[in-house]
């Protein structure tokens, strides 16, 4: 994407962000509340009016947006519905569904539910599920689309720590297996450190920096962007972990 900017009325949410997400790579967006992470993801998903350009390309050259399948999972704000899990995941394949659902579509739904270990929920109503189960179902919906680009906005916010690890593992392995370009918004910096191939840090609608986890998640960045004093340790595998110590006085949260 090049020079992507978003405004809500007169308020700029994003200013001229230029960023590339590569195939087979998990790019994690981090930043404080209101830093523009969701606006950026929505711009790529094609549901946010924006300035600048969002482009897609493969080794043969640029691809038109219409030829790129995007799986987008927004932040979960709940939705009141009597749809079942199967119906919800089927919607991921909305472009090819007819009045009668084909066996191939149903099989694809079952396969993706099984891969996320939630096949037993297939006949349940969405309204009966826990927040974590819902997030897995919407991840399944995005994967059922067999996407080229996977956009996940805080996919683990309602999950316990074990399910967080599981979901992020699945996202990373599917990204590698299928050659997806995956962009994930995460609040949990340690999860970002563990699972990102690359991290992009947003601050006040601008790109603060991008790079490998150890290069971006530094004590200096955490002070500048998040307004916290933190201890950052880099482990044997080259990945950092962050221990927040205290908020820096004089900084106001965004």
């Amino acid at each position: 994407m090049q020079d992507v900017g978003v405004r809500y009325g007169a308020v700029p949410a994003l200013a001229a962000i230029s960023l590339i997400a590569l195939a087979s790579e998990v790019l994690v967006l981090v930043g404080p509340n209101g830093s523009g992470k969701s606006s950026l993801v929505r711009s790529v998903a094609g549901i946010q009016r924006h300035d600048g350009q969002v482009g897609f390309a493969d080794p043969q050259g640029p691809r038109p947006r219409s030829s790129v399948r995007i799986g987008y999972v927004p932040q979960d704000i709940g939705s009141r519905t009597a749809l079942t899990v199967t119906e919800t995941v089927l919607l991921g394949r909305i472009g090819q569904l007819g009045l009668r659902v084909s066996d191939a579509d149903l099989d694809a739904v079952k396969a993706v539910l099984a891969s996320l270990d939630v096949l037993h929920l297939a006949a349940r109503h969405l309204g009966e599920l826990s927040g974590g189960q819902r997030q897995l179902v919407f991840l399944a919906q995005a994967l059922a689309a067999e996407p080229d680009v996977l956009l996940l906005d805080e996919p683990t916010s309602a999950l316990d720590v074990r399910h967080q690890l599981e979901v992020l593992e699945i996202v990373r392995s599917i990204t590698a297996e299928r050659g997806l370009a995956t962009v994930v918004v995460l609040h949990d910096l340690n999860a970002a450190a563990r699972f990102a191939d690359r991290i992009a840090v947003l601050d006040g609608g601008r790109l603060y920096g991008t790079g490998a986890p150890a290069a971006t998640l530094t004590a200096a960045m955490l002070g500048d962007v998040f307004g916290i004093e933190a201890h950052v340790a880099v482990h044997g595998d080259g990945r950092p972990s962050v221990t927040p110590l205290r908020a820096i006085r004089g900084r106001t949260a965004a």
């Binding site: 998903a45 987008y72 704000i77 749809l83 119906e87 909305i94 472009g95 009045l99 689309a145």
Partner: peptide
């Protein structure tokens, strides 16, 4: 109506998700 049945079903997940599905 028949043309839009699945799109209407998608709307039951909320506007944001429906848009995300291309509706």
């Amino acid at each position: 109506l028949v043309r839009d049945l699945w799109r209407l079903t998608a709307l039951k997940l909320g506007d944001e998700r429906a848009r995300g599905l291309g509706v």
